[in-house]
């Protein structure tokens, strides 16, 4: 238990004492002095490396989460649609549990709950694990839909060529299935990337953590979150482009039904 601080207060708890940061009396000749909020972004010059560091963590989280999470999703999708019967109930349970609980609680359970079973891990490891588990469950459902949309004839053609069910899955069914659901998977990866902002709550030093840090130093909360929001938006747009291009590279040009 030692060394764990539960997020009992919002990270912005200090802000109340500095609620007047940014408020200025502006003198106007007609109406006298007016209290007005003045936006200030001058702190960016000093603090942009903090954002940059946070950004690299966020990128690392989604890169690892996406690659391993999708691999896990493919495995689970195979089990749920074609795999051994006895493995299906536990995988179904996993998928349903993850899809019907908030990511924040999954993260807290892994980071705060598992250590009492003797599983210790760093903030970053916990964040990585939570993202893999989360994306694994969602991508399982998406990929399974792709597998189920495979025309029967594809399986029959595979077995008529003396392929085993697994070989048919691996060589005939999988790639067209992934191609079919690639747009849905792309959207899900972006949703998970944006959802990763809550890992700041276990003090994993991602982009949101950077924003929290900066606002606690500069008392420029709105501006700090505004800038980090803009970075997230940019990241989401870039990630979508990257995934579209990746889709074009890994799938043959012909469209599948």
């Amino acid at each position: 238990m030692a060394g764990r601080t539960y997020p009992c207060r919002p990270l912005n708890h200090g802000v109340r004492h500095h609620a007047f940061a940014g408020w200025r009396f502006i003198h106007s000749t007609e109406r006298g002095s007016v209290l007005k909020y003045v936006f200030d972004y001058s702190w960016l010059a000093q603090y942009w490396p903090v954002f940059l560091k946070g950004l690299t963590i966020t990128v690392e989280l989604i890169a690892v989460g996406a690659v391993i999470g999708i691999a896990l999703g493919i495995l689970c999708a195979w089990i749920r649609s074609l795999g051994p019967q006895w493995l299906r109930p536990p995988v179904t349970l996993y998928v349903e549990l993850i899809r019907n609980t908030p990511f924040l609680i999954q993260l807290f359970f892994i980071f705060f709950g598992l250590p009492s079973l003797g599983v210790q891990m760093s903030e970053l490891q916990a964040a990585n694990l939570a993202m893999i588990i989360n994306l694994g469950a969602y991508s399982c459902e998406i990929i399974r839909a792709g597998i189920q949309a495979t025309p029967r004839g594809q399986f029959e053609a595979g077995s008529s060529l003396a392929m085993s069910p697994f070989e048919t899955f691996r060589h005939v069914v999988l790639v067209p299935s992934l191609q079919r659901i690639w747009p849905a998977l792309t959207s899900q990866i972006i949703i998970v990337m944006l959802g990763s902002s809550v890992v700041s709550q276990i003090a994993a030093e991602d982009l949101t953590f950077a924003a929290n840090f900066i606002q606690s130093r500069t008392f420029r909360a709105f501006e700090a979150y505004f800038v980090s929001t803009a970075i997230y938006l940019l990241l989401a747009i870039l990630l979508r482009q990257l995934l579209v291009v990746t889709g074009r590279l890994i799938f043959p040009r012909r469209s599948v039904r």
Partner: peptide, 23 residues
């Protein structure tokens, strides 16, 4: 805009942004 940014950021911006109108 709302689908391309984290809900958590939207919450922070609402919290501090609304604060710009009333303390």
């Amino acid at each position: 805009l709302f689908q391309g940014t984290p809900l958590l950021m939207q919450l922070f911006l609402a919290f501090f942004g609304l604060g710009l109108f009333g303390i």
